[in-house]
């Protein structure tokens, strides 16, 4: 009987995904309503719930894909994978104002550069504090603080060691998770309540998963604006880190 159930769940992965996520969201909205009287938004709690599931799944399986590494919950991986995520993000643009998007063009470009630079320098600073002195390791860890994609792409391009690479990815993961959790908490104090600021926010923070989840938990109407800007961040980071930023680091710390 249990074997039968197990087989059914394995065969219908995506449906299990819908059910699990529906359950997480249901519980989150219930808790948001009862415990925080709506002060902590239900979707913020749901994202946090997702991260808890990821931790549990990762602990059990030892894999990198959270709950999706457990065969029974592989459907969650499909539902939250890159394909459907991009599909749904593009859909949120429907109904967004094209005029609002165009208006913020130049400040967003500025935000992209400023955001990448600030994250990179923070990462390099921390790496320095932990005793790293060579340009390759410093650049790779700095790039990881930009996003968890920029880190390994940069590390591979400039020949970083695998333990530095792992640290770099971990820094990027921390960034994504912190952005997911912190965005709804700081939204008010940074004025994140209009399309313009959402685009600046997306351009400055840039980590795709962090920005998309952070805005979803803050105000879904702002999602297309923030994500639109963030979509250029990782690409620009992958472009800048192994080139200009690496050369700058090599000039600063010759070894």
């Amino acid at each position: 009987m249990i074997e039968l159930l197990h087989q059914a769940l394995l065969k219908n992965g995506l449906l299990v995904g819908f059910a699990v996520v529906g359950g997480v969201i249901g519980i989150s909205y219930f808790l948001s309503d009862r415990l925080t009287r709506g002060r902590l938004h239900g979707s913020a709690l749901a994202v946090f719930g997702g991260l808890v599931l990821a931790y549990v799944g990762g602990s059990i399986s030892g894999g990198k894909n959270g709950i999706a590494d457990l065969p029974m919950f592989a459907g969650v991986g499909l539902l939250g994978g890159a394909m459907l995520r991009d599909f749904a993000i593009v859909a949120t643009a429907y109904g967004a104002s094209f005029a609002d998007l165009k208006k913020s063009g130049l400040p967003v470009v500025l935000a992209l550069f400023a955001g990448i630079l600030v994250s990179f320098v923070s990462g390099v600073g921390v790496a320095l504090a932990f005793g790293y002195r060579d340009a390759v390791s410093l650049t790779t860890i700095g790039a990881g603080a930009v996003t968890y994609i920029v880190g390994p792409v940069t590390g591979a391009a400039i020949g970083a060691t695998s333990d530095v690479m792992a640290l770099s990815i971990a820094a990027g993961l921390v960034k994504a998770i912190v952005v997911m959790i912190a965005t709804p908490l700081v939204a008010k104090s940074i004025g994140l309540d209009n399309p313009h600021t959402a685009m600046i926010y997306g351009g400055t923070l840039g980590t795709n998963s962090g920005v998309s989840a952070g805005l979803a938990a803050t105000d879904p109407a702002l999602v297309p604006y923030g994500v639109m800007a963030a979509t250029f961040y990782t690409g620009l980071g992958c472009f800048l880190a192994p080139s200009v930023l690496f050369l700058a680091m090599r000039a600063l710390c010759p070894s």
Binding site: G49, A54, A145, A166, L173, V174
Partner: peptide, 28 residues
């Protein structure tokens, strides 16, 4: 979109982020 983002959160490498230790935590 929100359900999909929750599913995305559920497959983040949270363990990897924690294992990165204080350097990764501070850098992030």
């Amino acid at each position: 979109y929100i359900p999909i983002v929750v599913a995305m959160a559920a497959q983040q490498n949270v363990l990897g982020a924690i294992k990165g230790g204080p350097l990764a935590f501070l850098a992030g």
